[in-house]
Design a protein around this nucleic acid. Structure first.
Lengths: 130, 130
DNA sequence: CTAGTTGCAAAGAGTTTGCATGGCG
DNA sequence: CGCCATGCAAACTCTTTGCAACTAG
């Protein structure tokens, strides 16, 4: 999907690298990069491209109609669940063993096949609880 | 929030009563009621009112920017988690005991305080797996 | 060079709101 | 009858797209 590494794409990737595991809306990303040499459409197009490349995970936040993105150049994230802090946006990774246990329980009790990549658990992280 | 029971509000409530535990977008609801005597704005206003009254739960679906609603005239739903089928939209209620177990585990292992009302687990329900 | 990418501005989807009219209680 | 709710259309927010200009390789 991406053939050239443009200045704009690099700006976005640099920003995202500094915000790994944070769940940010497209608007927040655009704000952070405002002033830099990248247009809104380039941001949206690159976010969509990165999502297709699997380097970014898109999600939705309850009570918001914005698209949220989480940057992770990590293939391993497909196997486990994620928690997202409603206050600071940080992501917590649930251990694979705990994820398996939960998925098995849901399969056994409810016959429900959990989608690990689309599911995000919301709440407040340890730091924000203080 | 609602002082009068108008024809429009009744139309909406009647429709929702027949679709308890289904997660539907505002657009789907509007489509289903098109032809009936209710305007789009009345639908949105009533959905918002019902949500504030706690009779409806708003959520967001991964990869969509639409607002989704689940009808439940059930106070008990605050204590447990919900599974939403990505295919048919049906909701499965996770037993309170199982929800507690999960919440405790997350609190203990990750220090994360799970939000039971905002979290929705996605996947495929037993019926759709066949 | 030349196909991929950008910026801009216009178009789209989904949702909200102002205001005059209409209807519930 | 008085206040609330409705319908309509305009406004808004977030996102996508067409197209000419630009640029990475």
């Amino acid at each position: 999907m991406a053939k050239y590494l443009t200045k704009q794409r690099k700006l976005l990737l640099d920003f995202l690298s500094e915000h790994t595991d944070e769940t940010l809306s497209a608007g927040q990303i655009a704000d952070a990069l405002s002033g830099k040499e990248i247009s809104t459409s380039a941001i949206y197009r690159n976010l969509a491209a990165l999502e297709q490349e699997g380097r970014l995970k898109r999600s939705a936040k309850p009570g918001s109609q914005e698209a949220y993105y989480r940057f992770t150049d990590d293939e391993d994230c497909r196997g486990h669940l994620h928690l997202s802090c409603l206050r600071c946006g940080k992501t917590v990774h649930v251990e694979e063993a705990a994820t398996d246990a939960l998925a098995h329980q849901l399969a056994k009790n409810e016959g429900f096949a959990l989608d690990r990549t689309d599911t995000v658990l919301y709440g407040i992280c340890a730091d924000c609880r203080k």
